[in-house]
Design a protein around this nucleic acid. Sequence first.
DNA 1: CGGATGCCTTGACCGAGATCAAGTGGATGA
DNA 2: TCATCCACTTGATCTCGGTCAAGGCATCCG
Lengths: 247, 247
Amino acid sequence: MNFQIHTDHSKCGDCPIRHRAVCAHCDQDELEALEEIKYYRSFEAGQTIIWSGDQMSFVGSMVSGIASLTQTMEDGRTQMVGLLLPSDFVGRPGRDFAPYDVVATTDIVMCCFRKKPFEELMAHTPHIAQRLLQMTLDELDAAREWMLVLGRKTAREKIASLLSIIARRDASLTKGGMSGPMVFDLPLTREAMADYLGLTLETVSRQMSALKRDGVILLEGKRHVTIPDMGRLMEEAGDDTDGGFLV
Amino acid sequence: MNFQIHTDHSKCGDCPIRHRAVCAHCDQDELEALEEIKYYRSFEAGQTIIWSGDQMSFVGSMVSGIASLTQTMEDGRTQMVGLLLPSDFVGRPGRDFAPYDVVATTDIVMCCFRKKPFEELMAHTPHIAQRLLQMTLDELDAAREWMLVLGRKTAREKIASLLSIIARRDASLTKGGMSGPMVFDLPLTREAMADYLGLTLETVSRQMSALKRDGVILLEGKRHVTIPDMGRLMEEAGDDTDGGFLV
DNA sequence: CGGATGCCTTGACCGAGATCAAGTGGATGA
DNA sequence: TCATCCACTTGATCTCGGTCAAGGCATCCG
């Protein structure tokens, strides 16, 4: 097996995603109960964590790295339907089979719980269920936002939308904040971007070049992006430019 | 005001959506608590029930009729991001402002709860919170399914996908079942279908004509649809044809 | 060093679906 | 009975993004 199992090498108190994950609202008792059943697991970039249709034996939280949820048609067309960032929840309590492939985009670490014990714990731990409901509602909002991107935006707007989402999520995880130029590394290949946006990788490449040519973004190498003017990027994305940053 | 407020003219026990709505798992006590705070409200076809950005004062369940969730860009491009059918939940506990327009597609009746009392009730009524979590997870699945349709399917496949979804949901609400030809009335205009599918109404019209010409569907008038062979339609939709009907 | 390999870019061309425009048919109402 | 309106259909043309193809540029490995 090419993954490692760690026994819990870190206390929940020190956990970098402690305040944003499914355990965010837990009190000390609840945290201890979770600590009982949790274990860490690492996956390498490119590895499939869960196969669509497989039995799901665990759920968990993303601790570090990036993973994607993808759907594939018989003829090979694929669509990414979710991007999993640190603190996001993976898996679905109350359902036995995975509806999507979950693939590690970068090396990742997950904090896992066996599904059965987690479900039992959830039944008597309203703080977990409540938090999970909030997170699911947020994901639903994000999915619907994405439906507008997929259904109605042009290729250029799609790219700008993706860049602005990544930039904002990145800013919310690091100290940087949103003032001044934003700098980050794209965690996705051109192909993954295409799968997210319902485009081909050629179109992604062309539009990236166009945004660069027009000064909307700066590119160093293929992945290192600087956004000199976030407002400009948001205009290109076709979004309301008047703030309202909800992450 | 062009809507009517009814005092609760029907007991929850008689409610047609009793077993599928947010109250599905409630026991007698919980049902009585809900009955205390519920009220019915009707809206006419075309009416906007909730405006994006407005304060949400109530949540509720669809009792009859169809409504849609839509997002609109400044230049008028619109994308439908959800289709609300009987038993679906409307509104978002824990959030103050509506993220989308909710528009009545047909005449509808809703079973409403003022948001504040509902949230309080939810805090001590795990059956409601649990059920709402399940329903939200289902909606998330549906949204992700739709992302594949929007991102990767052709116009013809999109139309076939929409027809098969409506046909299946219709079958699950009526006695018909899924054997033999399926017959239903389209609850959406061509324009609404276009907004759902990320197409123009002209393309919707052309593809409907094409599916009719090819014998995949029969049309009587503009709205009355017969599907002689559901398997054929699912093939046209690009879906796995091998069953697995999850509603 | 040289050949692979993976990821990306760029060009030429094509076609699905958008756009623009005209027309149909049924319902409504004066 | 006729004008109007609305939802829809159909045709002609255009265009954005897909497809096919070639090439660039790191990195890896023999």
